[in-house]
Design a protein around this nucleic acid. Structure first.
Lengths: 148, 148
DNA sequence: GCCAATTAAATTGTGCACAATCAAGTTGTA
DNA sequence: TACAACTTGATTGTGCACAATTTAATTGGC
């Protein structure tokens, strides 16, 4: 078994690697998304809406695994920026429907330039990217179950 | 080349995977570190200090790639919790030395139980963990250079 | 020795992510 | 039908992460 010294070093190595990678990626996104006027979390929301316009806050939360504490203010800012509109659902007044504005729809075109730049910045081959994605997805699932 | 539809989906897939993994890991850490009275970023600071007591804020920042905007309040809270002490360096009064208290030193023992639990929660084999770590580290380096 | 340039850490401002709570609305059961 | 139980999204509180700025100290060049 690992002694306590080695265990803490291993922890530092792999878990910190995930943490550091996410932050580094955040940094590149910040630069790339600045001209679109979006933050990365906002960009994620837009990605969902570009795929399927008019979703509830609940559905957004499910897709992005975010709760309303995060989404409410985020959507408020997206609405203030003119990219989305929020409306109470007629069939269930607790629900809020989020829709793209024309401005929000048009933003998709500019956004298509982002992924290529991010992937290029990773310095990874496509095969590495796909394997990484698979491993991370499995790990995330396991981690998520560990706290539920 | 990828069309814009596929590109945005791929982006969602791999970059979101990193983002989601980091957040899921944060969640598991939150649970595991609660009994130690630490947050994950605080735990990272303690890891550095357990390896080498008495470091400057600058050195902490370099090790963890955090700036003083993040570290200052974080260290302030660690000090308030009784785990560390901050003192101005006599040789350079701009520098602040961070040292473990006795309480902070003793915390290491309890902390040794954390890594095993985290790694177990990942559901990955050790070989997968090591490969993942390697890929992420390379990617982080590349991403970091992309914004500098 | 003097002063401009640089450095270290703290502070201010902004946006996120989560836990806990709340108000309003909907559903399920007796 | 009435009401308890549950759901939805907003709000409150806390801690982080980064950009920009500030204050004080140190260094480097003349």
């Amino acid at each position: 078994m690992l002694g306590h010294v080695n265990a803490l070093l291993l922890d530092n190595q792999v878990c910190f690697a995930v943490h550091a990678a996410a932050r580094a990626m955040d940094g590149v996104y910040r630069r790339e998304l600045a001209e679109l006027g979006l933050t990365y979390p906002q960009y994620l929301v837009m990605l969902v809406l570009w795929e399927r316009d008019q979703v509830t806050v609940k559905e957004l939360g499910a897709a992005l695994r975010l709760d309303s504490g995060t989404l409410s203010p985020l959507l408020k800012r997206l609405e203030a920026a003119g990219f989305v509109r929020r409306e109470r659902s007629a069939s269930d007044e607790r629900s809020v429907l989020v829709r793209l504005t024309e401005q929000g729809t048009e933003l998709r075109q500019a956004a298509t330039r982002v992924p290529g730049r991010i992937l290029e910045a990773t310095g990874l081959e496509l095969s590495e990217v796909l394997e990484l994605s698979g491993t991370l997805t499995r790990m995330t699932r396991s981690l998520t179950q560990a706290v539920s």
